[in-house]
Design a protein around this nucleic acid. Structure first.
Length: 920
RNA sequence: GGGCGGAUAGCUCAGCUGGGAGAGCGCUGCCCUUACAAGGCAGAGGUCACAGGUUCGAUCCCUGUUCCGCCUACCA
């Protein structure tokens, strides 16, 4: 039998068992294995990432689920992998190039991509190693990467499939452009931040009557140079006579029309007139479409004022000279200054607005006109809405369902092309023969300008010959796909799709998706759409959405705030199991998690408690063990099995409902406050009497219950449970792992109401005596003489039956007899929870403290009795409340009265004793 | 602007379909009792944000208010 150290030291234990598990292949699933499949696909972390607290929560929950299901005998598969994270990864490698004094343009596309692959080979495994440290029981033989060959094939198949169904198109639209990353972004990649800006009111004089003017308001005065019209509301009597006339656009030589537009214009806001800049604002773009206005862009890709375009927009030479090639932010005050000088600016006011920023680099996003690829999303969204409405996919907690549905019903086309190099290059080719006049190389390497009119050939592989002109020379579209395009296929691409593989047939649709709310739209919604479209099935049944982890002050954790809790150092300090238990115990639905290290420390102590219980157990197993049966089991054994049975039911039910917090609290309470505090204390004397009649069955029950408890705990605390389990004598299970032992299920024959009732009496009696000991300041080591009150035959029998336990736990000599038979003097009567005990007062004791306590108890009891009495006296209550409730109150009043009577006599007795003490 | 969630002990949070306010940490007192001082035993501490309403009865249901957080949105 192994000898355990006095304190649990998680560090070496964890590494050792993780290696053991992977060496034996316990995490590997197979389509051929028996058991109902249970599948989870990991939300693939960015390959650039390192484990943060959100990952830790996310993966702890997945691991609890998968370990639990595996132990239940399900064919459990957890597919791991990483995401190529286009922009993020490209940024990392580009920064590296900068330190080397070079750029990706200098390197060229092919060489750059090669560099990224090299980087990935070197550093891309970090997060995987960290997941292992967390104990994640993924099937690592199936590790996937979104740029793997198989997954890339899936991406091309899906792209071509959507294109052929008319669900992918290319066109020039206004898109969100990051001027730093130099790429388009989808709508949800733009994060809106409330900012306080200025609202400038600018006067636009009428073209033929310069004495009159329209005043427009804008937060972005620089974009006025690209205005194509001014809109007023067609039913606005102030202005509608002007519709069809022109205004002179200040700072330019252009005259632009006044149009009527009821969609764009809100009569109540500002002056009621709005400038329209189709090339730099989403609303204006649509208004421009409605009125067929020219799209005059004035910015370049870096969001600087483009000299060429300013000239084309007819901007006055003097103004141009000052703002050419300046960034928007630098040009803005200069334009305001010019407007002021020429008398066009009327007023300025502060204005609250939401500013869009790039979700990767926080640069202010610029709406820009650009040819891009889009997914026509409505036809995909409809079935995805229906699947959730019909309950084929269930959100947990279900409150997120409405969020999802609302977003899906209002969904916009998805811009999927990105102007970066790292990612899945779009499988579209332009024949240089057909598009000869259109394709222009603009940069030294790989930068081509492909106008929206260019005709692509879309196919899974590069075409050999152009079907129209026979040319064999092609240019592949330089853009790559949005990273989330490949993530959207993850649940089936990782299982072998588009091949009809055994894995796909066995493990798809997957069972549960565990994810944070932040990627509900980025990822979950798109997986549902793509899954339904390409597999005809939902990609998963349950979506468990967990909270965000914040710091103890409720702040979002971020490096810049310096409030980051690093999971790895937490695991080093407190152990992985304590960390996992903390995360799971705080994962209650509908609330963000505020993580405080004190909490982790508390659960570290819990791990240590379990550890020491195991040490106790191993020290006491010497000697024979009986195959215990209900008839041979002692009272503590029957009691603890009954409680264990209940706990097994509660934990399973909690896991079934994704209530990890409840599972934890049941385990914590049972292990610490029932198993350790009471059961182990109860059986100590039994075990000490090694040859006693109860020792053998108790040893058996002890190991049986503890082994079961370890299995119950294992999904949440895998390491310590394995470490201890391996130290137990296991007979036939030698060489196995707890990982693959069955998860405990309820054992009806363990249920024992009598034992639980007896325990209730025992617990109350012992507690009462302990209170008395404190009140009277009896030295802890000194034995007391205690009288147990017997109200009736049944109680007498119960107390007598557990007499030895009473004496051991209360450290006293206990005599059970009716109160009338107690010695009259020098017995302090105490009552708690309906149990009465009398303590024989001997020697120097502090009677005043006891008196105070009894008075306080009396006062509280009186007040309570009065309240209940009043309630029962009220005809409204007795007349209308359910009979059960009335009866409960009557019973309670009865008990209160009995207790008060006892307390009264106790107080009187105490006074006597106190007086007696003084007079003698 | 729209939607959602939260407000319970000093701190972090439970509290299921309305009937005697709970846990952990922290705090106080006594104990190094041979599993565990990362421990044991016993305690103190709450107008359940505020104001109404429904009910015999409200932390729980309804309405409104305040504060905090999140999601979403093109009001220039």
């Amino acid at each position: 039998m192994a000898e355990l150290e006095k304190t649990y030291e998680p560090q070496q234990v964890e590494r050792r068992w993780y290696q053991f598990w992977t060496k034996h292949g316990y995490f590997q699933a197979s389509a051929n294995r028996s058991g109902t499949p249970y599948t989870i696909v990991i939300p693939p972390p960015n390959v650039t990432g390192s484990l943060h607290i959100g990952h830790a929560l996310n993966n702890t929950i997945q691991d609890i689920l998968i370990r639990w299901r595996r132990m239940q005998g399900r064919n459990a598969l957890w597919v791991p992998g990483t995401d190529h994270a286009g922009i993020a990864t490209q940024n990392v490698v580009e920064r590296q190039l900068t330190t080397e004094g070079t750029t990706r343009e200098t390197l060229g596309r092919a060489a750059f991509i090669q560099r990224v692959w090299e980087w990935k080979a070197q550093s891309g495994g970090t997060i995987i190693e960290q997941l292992k440290r967390l104990g994640a029981s993924c099937d690592w033989s199936r590790l996937r990467f979104t740029m793997d060959e198989g997954l890339s094939k899936a991406v091309r198949d899906v792209f071509v499939g959507l294109y052929e169904d008319g669900l992918i198109y290319r066109g020039e639209r206004l898109i969100n452009w990051c001027p730093r990353c130099l790429t388009a972004l989808s709508d949800i990649e733009v994060q809106h931040e409330d900012t306080s800006g200025q609202l400038y009111h600018i006067r636009y004089p009428l073209a033929d009557r310069s004495s009159e003017s329209l005043t427009v308001a804008t937060t972005r005065p620089e974009t006025m140079l690209g205005d194509a019209a001014v809109a007023v509301h067609p039913e606005d009597d102030r202005y509608n006579r002007l519709i069809g006339q022109f205004v002179s656009l200040p700072l330019t030589n252009r005259k632009i029309p006044i149009v009527g537009d009821s969609i764009l214009v809100n009569r109540e806001f500002g002056s009621g007139a709005v400038k329209i800049t189709p090339a730099h604002d989403f609303n204006d773009f649509e208004a421009g479409e409605r009125h067929r206005l020219p799209r005059l862009g004035i910015l370049d890709l870096h969001a600087r004022l483009d000299p060429q375009k300013l000239q084309e927009a007819g901007v006055e030479e003097g103004v141009r000279a000052r703002i050419n090639s300046l960034s928007v932010l630098k040009a803005r005050p200069l334009i305001v200054e010019a407007l002021t000088q020429q008398g066009y600016l009327t007023t300025t006011e502060t204005h609250k607005m939401a500013l869009g920023k790039c979700y990767r680099c926080k640069t202010v996003v610029e709406p820009l006109l650009s040819p891009q690829w889009f997914v026509k999303i409505k036809p995909l969204a409809e079935p995805a809405i229906a699947a959730v409405e019909a309950g084929r996919i269930r959100f947990v907690p279900e409150t997120w369902t409405n969020n999802y549905l609302g977003w899906m019903r209002d969904i916009k086309d998805w811009c999927i092309s990105r102007q970066i190099w790292w990612g899945h290059q779009i499988p579209a080719w332009y024949c240089r023969g057909c598009n000869r006049s259109l394709l222009v190389q603009t940069g030294p390497e790989g930068t081509w300008l492909i106008p929206p009119e260019a005709k692509p050939l879309v196919d899974k592989t590069a075409p050999a010959r152009c079907p129209d002109c026979g040319n064999t020379d092609f240019l592949q579209d330089p853009d790559v796909l949005d990273t989330w395009f490949s993530s959207a296929l993850w649940p089936f691409s990782t299982l072998g799709w588009p091949e009809d593989s055994p894995d796909l047939r066995t493990f798809y649709p997957t069972s549960t998706l565990v994810t944070g709310l932040d990627i509900l739209f980025f990822w979950v919604a798109r997986m549902i759409m793509m899954g339904l479209k390409f597999t005809g099935q939902v990609p998963f049944r349950d979506v468990y959405i967990h909270a965000l982890v914040r710091d103890a002050e409720g702040q979002k954790m971020s490096k810049s705030k310096g409030n980051v809790i690093d999971p790895l150092s937490v695991m080093d300090t407190y152990g992985t199991d304590a960390f996992r238990f903390t995360l799971a115990s705080m994962a209650s639905p509908g609330r963000d998690i505020k993580l405080a290290v004190e909490r982790i420390e508390g659960y570290r102590n819990f791990a240590n408690k379990i550890w020491n219980a195991a040490r106790f157990l191993l020290m006491n197993l010497g000697g024979p063990r009986n195959a215990a049966t209900p008839s041979t089991r002692s009272f503590p054994d029957r009691w603890i099995l009954s409680r264990l049975n209940r706990t097994i039911g509660l934990v399973n039910a909690a896991l079934e409902q994704y209530r990890f917090d409840q599972a934890c609290s049941h385990l914590y309470h049972f292990i610490w406050h029932e198993y350790c505090d009471w059961y182990l204390e109860l059986i100590k004397p039994v075990l000490q009497d090694k040859a006693g009649p109860q020792a053998a069955p108790t040893r058996q029950t002890l190991i049986e219950s503890f082994e079961c408890l370890l299995r119950l705990l294992h999904p949440i605390m895998p390491f310590i449970s394995e470490e201890i389990w391996q130290a137990l004598p296991r007979g036939a299970e030698e060489g196995q792992s707890i990982t693959i032992r069955p998860y405990p299920t309820m054992q009806p024959h363990w249920d024992d109401k009598d034992a639980e009732a007896t325990f209730g009496t025992l617990e109350q009696f012992v507690t009462t005596v302990r209170i008395g000991r404190v009140l009277l300041n009896y030295p802890p080591g000194k034995m007391l003489t205690v009288y147990g009150a017997v109200k009736d035959q049944g109680e007498g029998t119960a107390l007598t039956a557990v007499h030895s336990h009473l004496e051991a736990l209360s450290r006293s000599h206990v005599q059970v007899r009716p109160i009338d038979a107690w010695p009259r003097a020098q017995v302090l009567r105490l009552v708690t929870g309906g149990i009465t005990a009398g303590l024989l007062v001997e020697g120097e004791v502090d009677l005043q403290k006891a008196l105070d306590r009894i008075r306080k108890q009396t006062d509280e009891g009186l007040a309570e009795a009065k309240r209940v009495e009043g309630k029962l006296g009220s005809p409204e209550f007795t007349g209308k409340a359910p009979a059960v409730v009335v009866a409960e109150h009557k019973q309670r009043l009865q008990r209160l009265r009995e207790e008060l009577a006892l307390l009264g006599s106790s107080e009187a007795q105490l006074r006597e004793m106190a007086d007696g003490g003084r007079s003698s």
